[in-house]
Nucleic acid binder design. Structure first.
Lengths: 100, 100
DNA sequence: TTATATTTGCCAATATTTGTCAAGACAATA
DNA sequence: TATTGTCTTGACAAATATTGGCAAATATAA
């Protein structure tokens, strides 16, 4: 199954008639990496998202959200207790936010 | 901040008057690892949870849930878009479950 | 076909995780 | 105060995972 992030990148890139190698060049990585990212074969590094968003004229936070969702999904995808764990993690997160 | 998993392990262990080194021995790891796990300094390996649950006479799924929640939290804890990403990940998870 | 674009498998470099050891902190008590 | 037992911490090496890049394979278009 493809990643949320990868699908969105491909969508943004193709809509602008940009080639893999053009995007790769602007991001300063090999073409194959972008190909893999778009197909969900590998994850982009978090630090590369802002530049990518700029290149694709996309909302940074949207891409960061999708990227993060993929990371979470990667952790829980095959776990029986995935939903329960998400609940627990969310509670802890909200608890932390209240304290700040 | 301590981990959900670590706190629970310590709770279970001390209630049974078990020493770190006793638990470590049964789990076949160094005492320092259990110490760090209980304090949230490091994560136990997923494969070690069933044996740990058996040793502590605890519910495997409870421990797996807490362990997984810690993994999720580790991924999202410092992220601005944490909550949004959790929503997206949950949707994808539910979508996957329906399809199976 | 030919040219261009994308995908895939593999490798080496790098980063991260893991387990062990040894030293230190701490509390109880002789 | 010295001793003993428990727990904590940091440093280190080994094992494992991730990353980027190359080059060959495959797909797409003219």
């Amino acid at each position: 199954m493809a990643t949320q992030f990868g699908e969105r990148i491909r969508e943004l890139r193709t809509k602008q008639n940009m080639l893999l190698r053009q995007l790769a060049s602007l991001l300063d990585v090999d073409t194959s990496i972008i190909s893999k990212v778009e197909r969900g074969d590998r994850q982009l590094k978090k630090e590369q998202i802002p530049l990518l968003a700029q290149i694709l004229k996309a909302d940074v936070e949207e891409l960061q959200t999708l990227w993060l969702a993929d990371q979470i999904y990667e952790v829980v995808k095959d776990e029986k207790m995935a939903n329960e764990a998400m609940q627990v993690a969310e509670k802890k997160l909200n608890f932390k936010k209240r304290k700040q």
